[in-house]
Write a protein that binds this DNA or RNA. Sequence first.
DNA 1: CTGTTAGCGCTTTCAA
DNA 2: TTGAAAGCGCTAACAG
Lengths: 344, 344
Amino acid sequence: MGKKRENITIYDVAREAGVSMATVSRVVNGNPNVKPATRKKVLDVIRSLGYRPNAVARGLASKRTTTVGVVIPDISNMFYAELTRGIEDIATMYHYNIILSNSDLKTEKEIQLIEALLEKQVDGLLFLGGEVTDSHREIFNHTSVPIVLAATREEHQEKPSVTIDQIQAAKEATSVLILEGHQQIAYIGGPLTDSVNGYPRYIGYKEALEENEIPFVESFIQLGDYRYKSGYEAMKNLLTSHSSMTAVFAASDEMAVGAIHAAQDLGRSVPEDLSIIGFEDIPLASQVRPLLSTVSVPMYDIGAVAMRLLTKYMNNEHVESGQVVLQYSLELRDSTRLKEWEEK
Amino acid sequence: MGKKRENITIYDVAREAGVSMATVSRVVNGNPNVKPATRKKVLDVIRSLGYRPNAVARGLASKRTTTVGVVIPDISNMFYAELTRGIEDIATMYHYNIILSNSDLKTEKEIQLIEALLEKQVDGLLFLGGEVTDSHREIFNHTSVPIVLAATREEHQEKPSVTIDQIQAAKEATSVLILEGHQQIAYIGGPLTDSVNGYPRYIGYKEALEENEIPFVESFIQLGDYRYKSGYEAMKNLLTSHSSMTAVFAASDEMAVGAIHAAQDLGRSVPEDLSIIGFEDIPLASQVRPLLSTVSVPMYDIGAVAMRLLTKYMNNEHVESGQVVLQYSLELRDSTRLKEWEEK
DNA sequence: CTGTTAGCGCTTTCAA
DNA sequence: TTGAAAGCGCTAACAG
């Protein structure tokens, strides 16, 4: 058994087995047009030589790398980690590998990463969570590599995407609070300039109020960065300036949990004094007390479906619809009082 | 501006710019041996043609792919997600891309993934969290691709690794409890067959007891799978059979938090009735009440250092020591009563 | 400073 | 069922 078998090529196998490279290539790729005896002979040589096919050479010759690029905001964010797991599982199932890169939602970095991925000749690209700007469209439109958006979409809807209806989800979350009888409902969200998550959730909140003729109060709006700490701070602000407030819709679970803790630190109990509902349903939501009521976003599925969709494009299969909208659900637990909710 | 610029090669650029392929290659790779005027001309053509270098062809010709393979147990596990972020950041810094694959700690799957990664001609490999068996060694020893282990190690210490001293860490965590005056200290851990995390943490617990002449009680040992739920169940068992118990060392934060909730559900308060300390210091530890005291493992750093180490091997740089042991620290928060701890 | 020329290891017609 | 041969797009000596 050779120590470092780095340089055993298809040629060596061919010579050793007394066949041509083409034949070796055929058995390696499972081409049926090989006489069983020949196949066995080749396989034996492959094993004894410890031959390992070079995927780079194969990629160059065949123009397929069985690799897909994934641009993700931040893998250490539970929401995206879960999504990535969905992607990876399906990728593995279809024998693709994924090249993962974190963008931190910086447009410039995103563009750069996409460019690098394209240079690496990925067979497909998954773009997650970021806003699709003109720069993105520019590059998307000048490549023939299939691209699927996940947990984001593009206004012109030219590119396939897998998402949920965020506005509707935020609206329902807020409606839960309204149905509980609250009139003073605050909103803790992300930047309104974030057109992917921040803005739609805000709009959903607003629409719910409007529909129920509850006055919108500017100072009930607190903006953070979706993280625990900013939720905590936001709630502290809210509570010191609006002691009459009785409910909060937070646009992320982390913020919601931060808000709960701030409330508790200021002597309020949840849900007795204050109802709080979150968004996402990351594991944290079920690992705190009170258990967080939240909008359950099918993170794993978004990733899995997006990857599956991408495989179809990569194989030139027929695609019913490139715009997939997945179902979310309302997970009413212990941070709100309402326990039942009929889907509209 | 071409629509699909898929087939513009270095040759096209060369022809258009009136130079040779070699020269184009030089400017693309930043080789200084090019007259500024020539460089500019080539750059202009590259831009106008929308030329994008083909990294696969480059990889085949140069035998370097600037890609590293990462085999990870589960990206949706916060601990590894954080680690991966460390890897990715350093990889980006050194212009490497990473191919990520989840192994779920299945040896067979790990081997298969490593094999696939090697086929893809990765320049280096990071193996995370899994046990290194003979099968692993077999394959590790027959390739010249540099490999670094992270959050795991190999008994013969033949392969470089980045870890923390788990036994010592577990021992100190247990000692905190002992120093608080507890005598009835339970242990909630992972499988003892898990030589990477489960067993060493268990040993650390045991050693701490021994050193302090506290009798080891078999039934104080509860084994789970590191997840919240198993911690919850373990604690319930413990509390119903050993009402005299006053402290618990849990081998993961999720289990520790699960344990806290079980205790609370059974009417005990933490840390008044029961002190609980965890292991890892994932974000969850600081997002629950009471704040979890825990062993803080530098997850991000383990990933970052491992990746940095790998770059050194890939560049044939001199490496001081391949066996890196990072410092952990004790983060004493509100689930224990002791608030100060002198490092031994 | 620039060009020529072999490959890198594999797939893929095209013939046989 | 098999083989020969032409690339895939780029890098890396080697000349000049």
